[in-house]
Write a protein that binds this DNA or RNA. Structure first.
Lengths: 130, 130
DNA sequence: AGTTGAATTAGTAATTGTTATTGATTTTGA
DNA sequence: TCAAAATCAATAACAATTACTAATTCAACT
């Protein structure tokens, strides 16, 4: 099992690259980032390991922006902001909006669904683009 | 003189198909739906016209779910619910959560961004799947 | 009705992000 | 030490979408 085993050097590097930035990168970005230090790395390995991180709860998808899936190693629930021009993804402080279990419960009761999580995303122009 | 061309019959049919359902369909779905009545329709035409609708503000993307982009002709701001098992997308009543211009303004002030819109999505299991 | 020119289309090819396969290499555990 | 399991790079395969091209449609104006 993954949890008992230590990460391989490459898996470790991929996680470190993802965790060290708030850019919410794509697989491609992680690959380009690591290529200089790990010349033998392949893009497929990056994709595979990002999937592993999602499975074991070390990362999540922020969605597919401009055709590419974007990842986040910050597992705290927080809203995102996506710049419609440059496709930067910014973290917003959770304080601005955080629906609690009460909202989940109300939705479950009123809409006959079970709610596991939510995602809140704002769109507009970032400071550089506007 | 400027062209006063109305929607072509096919463009009209594609829009009607999209607007007549709350399934938040994919391009493929619209295509399959219309094929019986419009045997000469091509999938590329569906894709192209869905893009047109997005551009002119007659439809929006609900995101890429399970690899396929899903569309919505309901331009009212409202939250969505995505079933993690069957990938149904349900509309939720806007009343359960609707951040106003005041939240937008606060974000603009505090985070140095300009906010144009937001999207709120809940995930879980629908009534059929849970 | 005929002409014109831009918009729209079908059909197909090309592109793109992602996943699966393969065969080699390394690691693990006994 | 040795065999099974895990991991890997490289490449092929895949599916959704977009781009291209030549043909057709349609409104505006004769």
């Amino acid at each position: 099992m993954q949890s008992k085993r230590n990460f391989s050097a490459k898996r470790e590097a991929i996680y470190a690259a993802l965790a060290s930035t708030t850019l919410h990168p794509s697989a491609e970005w992680v690959y380009e980032q690591l290529k200089p230090e790990l010349p033998g790395l392949s893009l497929g390995t990056v994709y595979r390991n990002l999937s592993v991180f999602k499975e074991i709860g070390l990362a999540r998808s922020v969605g597919i922006i401009n055709g590419q899936e974007r990842f986040d190693a910050n597992m705290m629930q927080h809203p995102h902001f996506i710049c419609q021009k440059c496709f930067r993804i910014l973290d917003l402080p959770a304080g601005y909006y955080s629906p609690g279990k009460n909202l989940y419960k109300m939705l479950e009761r009123e809409c006959d669904i079970s709610v596991e999580m939510h995602s809140m995303t704002f769109y507009g122009l970032c400071s550089r683009c506007r």
